Amino acid sequence: MESFTTGIERYPTQDISPKDDAQRVLKVLKDGGIAIIPSNVGYGIVATDPEALCRIFNAKKRQPHKRHAMIGNYDLHKDIHNLPARGAEMVRRLTVDLDLPLGVVASYHPDHPIIKKIPEYLLNQSSVGGTMAMLVNGGKFQEELSKLASNEELPLLGSSANLTGTGTKVTVEEIEPEIKAAANIIIDYGRQKYSHPRPSSTMINFNDLRVLRFGACYHVIQDVFSRFYGIHLPDDPGRDILFSGHLANSNNVH
């Protein structure tokens, strides 16, 4: 086992095992710890304990308007999000039929057991206007960890493993030392596959079909909306013009 500093465990040293590594991470999270984990759109930093999530917020130097997202999977999305039939079919086509990573923003069921375990102040940091973001189809490790957390009705929340404004990291080596130091365990699966032209997830509000962030596989997602639904999403201007990929809250579907 390799360590950055005392108390930080880094896996794997040799073999990659999403099931075993997810069990290791869940134990740390249930003890109030913080984990840096891989997803196919880059590395995230997550927790289930409210105090640990506050430590993440502080380590990242996030501004008050920034939000945590839920780390989930397609089944959890169906349980927690509340979408009309068309929006639900779109999410399924993108994440299940076409196997694309996607940040799904939608209304949620406030009476869901996992949602009810989130303190009000933390729920306010994880939702906007009655909607919540969830990363769906983030890869095998995320799928395993999400299943384990869901089975125990634990809210798995977090964001990208980087200082605010510096961009999602696709290798552990790129993650800033102060972010690594905040974690109790780091799962290092090497370079993640969706790093060009953008890491991080494409994020879409499925309540009003509005692009919130240009991210991984955006051109494919844009084509799906046009080809199958006749909906024309805006073009990604590129990282040189819009580094973060985040769009202002305006109607950008035509």
Rank of each mutant, 00 (worst) to 15 (best):
S201T: 10
V224G: 01
K117T: 10
N184G: 14
Q222A: 12
E89P: 05
S39H: 00
E176H: 13
R24T: 03
R239T: 08
V46S: 02
L212T: 00
K116G: 09
G190E: 10
P199G: 00
G230C: 07
E143D: 14
P113Q: 14
V136E: 02
Q142R: 06
H112G: 07
K117I: 11
V224I: 12
S126M: 03
D223Q: 04
I45L: 00
L123H: 09
Y121S: 14
S195R: 02
N82E: 13
G158K: 07
K19P: 07
N137F: 06
P197S: 09
R67F: 12
D31G: 15
V136C: 05
I56T: 02
G230S: 09
A216R: 00
M132F: 10
R198P: 01
N124P: 06
D223K: 05
A133N: 11
V105W: 07
A149I: 11
G190T: 14
L148S: 09
D97L: 06
G130C: 13
V105L: 12
G158E: 03
H246L: 13
H254C: 01
I204F: 13
S107T: 09
G33D: 10
V105F: 09
D223F: 00
Y189D: 03
I114T: 12
D188I: 02
N184L: 14
A35Y: 01
T48C: 14
D223W: 01
K60S: 07
E176L: 10
E9R: 09
G42Y: 00
L233V: 13
Y229S: 13
P84K: 05
K61N: 13
V104M: 10
V136H: 02
E173N: 06
G245K: 12
D99I: 06
S3P: 03
A47S: 15
K169R: 15
L94S: 12
D236C: 09
I8V: 12
A161M: 00
T5H: 15
I56E: 00
E174V: 00
N124G: 12
Q192L: 01
T166N: 07
K180Y: 09
G165I: 11
P237T: 12
F243V: 11
V128F: 08
I231E: 13
T95Y: 05
D79E: 08
M90S: 04
P177K: 06
E120P: 03
G44Y: 05
K140N: 04
N137W: 04
D235G: 07
T164K: 07
A181L: 15
T95R: 06
R239S: 07
I56V: 05
K193N: 01
L163G: 09
T13W: 05
I45V: 02
L29C: 12
N82G: 01
V128Y: 10
V41T: 05
L122A: 15
G103L: 10
E89T: 11
H68C: 02
V28L: 09
L29E: 11
T6G: 14
A35V: 03
S195H: 08
T48K: 07
R93Q: 14
G129W: 09
N205P: 08
R93F: 15
G139N: 08
L156P: 11
T6W: 13
V104E: 04
I187D: 05
Q63W: 08
V25I: 08
G245C: 14
P197G: 04
I241W: 05
T131H: 08
T171D: 06
D75E: 06
L83F: 15
L209V: 04
L53G: 06
F243A: 11
P64K: 11
E144C: 11
F214I: 12
